[in-house]
Design a protein around this nucleic acid. Sequence first.
DNA 1: CTTGACTGAGTGACCGTTCATTCAGACGAG
DNA 2: CTCGTCTGAATGAACGGTCACTCAGTCAAG
Lengths: 208, 208
Amino acid sequence: MRSARSVNQPSSPRASVPDKREAILRAATKVFAESGYFNSKVADVARVAGVADGTVYLYFKSKEEILRSIFERGVGEAIAAARAETAALDDPREKLRRIARLHLERLGADRDLAVVFQVELRGSTKFMEEFSAAGLAEYLRLIRETLEEGQRAGLFRAELNAKVVAKILFGALDEMATNWILSPRAYKLAPLADQVLDIFLNGVSSNK
Amino acid sequence: MRSARSVNQPSSPRASVPDKREAILRAATKVFAESGYFNSKVADVARVAGVADGTVYLYFKSKEEILRSIFERGVGEAIAAARAETAALDDPREKLRRIARLHLERLGADRDLAVVFQVELRGSTKFMEEFSAAGLAEYLRLIRETLEEGQRAGLFRAELNAKVVAKILFGALDEMATNWILSPRAYKLAPLADQVLDIFLNGVSSNK
DNA sequence: CTTGACTGAGTGACCGTTCATTCAGACGAG
DNA sequence: CTCGTCTGAATGAACGGTCACTCAGTCAAG
């Protein structure tokens, strides 16, 4: 069926054809998005991935670890992308715009992944706390630091609490994504980033 | 407790002393908040409510219906309160401030209820879609209409899409609430409404 | 006695996880 | 090249525990 990949994956030296791990993650994202994490059966994930039930447990310790892996990879990539793309920019306003655009572009590009991130990952305080601590905090910090940069530059009102302001921006973007998922209408998610940023920057701006 | 509730859709017309229904709802809110909806056992809810397992089914058709009832009551009350409190106000800006305050005050006053609303209800697209259609849409409409009122009055920028702007405000408030729940620090939620409104109104305001 | 709210042990379905077994391919010997 | 041997990835049936829901019976009130 699948010719062996030439590129070796570094993390798991013993897996012979590590496509399987990838296939399981992709399948799980799809299945979780469709039925919800708690309603999904490991057997369904296995079937969609094209492997046997037991094979799932050669790559993941438990059903929960699959969800965790989806999250960690997603957040990791998102943060890396945001850092990389903003590094070259000077204006903090442009940085925030880039972050917002990336945020909605990434989610808008993969509806299944978006559902898992916006809905399934929120379904229990246990997950939320864990995941929140894991990657979300870092994402919020990235936004906050950019805001503080703008405050030092005199672009944003200095009296604002950057932590709270970061949450406002994140919350607004988050709601755009959640609404997009739940909406039966098919529209583009990414362009909303500009509308959000427009209002947001106006709201925090000090010059006028 | 003779007086019948005006708005109940009784799954069980035979229930004579509806205190039990109330006790079960309260217990379920607590249990769901503590363990998460999917990890909660109906037996736990019954125990906390001080009734037998079977009694739960005299008042609710299923475990899911308990969750739905918690949601419907909460949203219904929130919308009623928001409408009542804004009716007397003229300035759309004041109306929005009232809505935002009420939003965070209500959630801040009952942590268990807040957890169910911010976390447990989000845990599956099935719930989300249903609930979203049910009450959340109306809440967003209330905000949107207030925004449009402000646009007509020339207070808010007319070129903004009120639907999107309503989501931004809701999303920002929502994130405040979610963060408050997950935070180990004990702080007051309601005062954040003013910080959010400050930035928000600045962002949408047309005069300057 | 009748009524019906209430009880809680029981039941059956469900599903995450395990593990005995299979077998495709690697490899050394001849 | 062809065996024979070995390995461990992959399999999927079976297990064991859990839990939503049921219903035959209890009991108090009238």
